[in-house]
């Protein structure tokens, strides 16, 4: 009797919650597969060799003096990925924050137009966007032709970290602007007037009211830019001329080499690291979530 009731509850529970079902099928199961592959070898026996390999594999790179140097391959790649992702995120924040604020204070019609302009690039395939940037940044590309036309000399950008950062910022800037804009658009304008009334010059209003109130948007924006940019792969290959092998490239390379288990291990480690980083960030900024302002 008891068993029957439990089973019926289970059945109705599943039927009544398509979202949970969706989450199980499309999120938990794939993640479980990633973990399963990460901890097994080619004959699907349990092993931690893939994980260990990530931390211990070495390779030789040419140092600045030209001599070969042994480095931990994947730790170096991780560091490089983190660095480029962090730079891109900071640049996105510095560009996106003022832009989001300006948009949120514009007339409703102007807001709509500006948001559409920001969204339009997202409708294009990201490979095409990356190729477009190649055309712009190449040594004989649009930018250099333009500079040469003005007799300003040429700049070498393609194949540098700068080119990779430009590509990532261009691709991920909308993900920074959207959460910032949505929180700033909800911000009560009277709070800004109140701060002015109570003696704040415009800089004080920004520091004491707008910044703290928009922190939930900053957290969301940083998360939404940092995570995809840390695992990006194609941009670095095309704009970095293959000079800046990133974690995403490593995963892609291992998959295409049919080395699924090690690819899964890299993805697994990256995921755990990101989850940990997100947890820390949420904890550090939890004091900024108030009055339903957090998205």
């Amino acid at each position: 009797m008891t068993k029957k009731t439990t089973r019926r509850n289970l059945v109705t529970g599943i039927a009544a919650s398509p979202y949970e079902l969706w989450a199980v099928v499309f999120i938990l199961v794939p993640l479980a597969f990633v973990a399963y592959y990460a901890f097994t070898d080619n004959s699907f026996r349990f092993t931690t060799a893939n994980i260990t390999r990530f931390f211990t594999a070495t390779s030789s790179v040419a140092g600045e003096d030209g001599a070969g140097r042994e480095v931990r391959t994947y730790l170096l790649i991780s560091w490089r990925s983190l660095k480029l992702a962090a730079i891109s995120t900071v640049v996105c924040l510095l560009l996106g924050y003022p832009l989001a604020y300006i948009i949120s204070r514009a007339s409703p019609k102007a807001q709509k137009t500006m948001m559409t302009l920001i969204m339009i690039p997202m409708w294009m395939n990201f490979l095409i966007r990356t190729y477009a940037w190649m055309t712009i940044l190449q040594d004989t590309g649009i930018l250099n032709n333009f500079l040469a036309g003005l007799h300003l000399g040429r700049v070498h950008i393609i194949g540098t970290e700068t080119a990779v950062v430009i590509g990532m910022v261009y691709d991920y800037l909308p993900y920074m602007i959207l959460p910032l804009y949505s929180i700033m658009a909800k911000m009560d304008h009277r709070l800004i007037e109140a701060a002015r009334d109570l003696g704040c010059a415009p800089v004080g209003v920004l520091r004491r009211v707008i910044l703290p109130l928009s922190m939930p948007g900053v957290v969301n924006g940083v998360t939404m830019v940092l995570i995809p940019s840390i695992s990006t792969f194609y941009i670095s290959q095309k704009l970095g001329d293959g000079m800046f092998f990133l974690l995403g490239d490593a995963i892609e390379g291992q998959y295409t080499a049919n080395n699924l288990h090690f690819a899964a291990a890299i993805a697994f480690i990256l995921m755990v690291a990101l989850l940990a980083a997100m947890a820390v960030m949420r904890h550090l900024t939890s004091k900024y979530t108030y009055g339903g302002a957090a998205a």
Partner: peptide, 20 residues
């Protein structure tokens, strides 16, 4: 003269307290 330099303060409609 901007609001922050006036020796005048306001009690706003619906208060406008700082939620943070």
């Amino acid at each position: 003269v901007p609001p922050h330099k006036r020796n005048v303060n306001t009690v706003f409609q619906r208060y406008a307290l700082f939620p943070h």
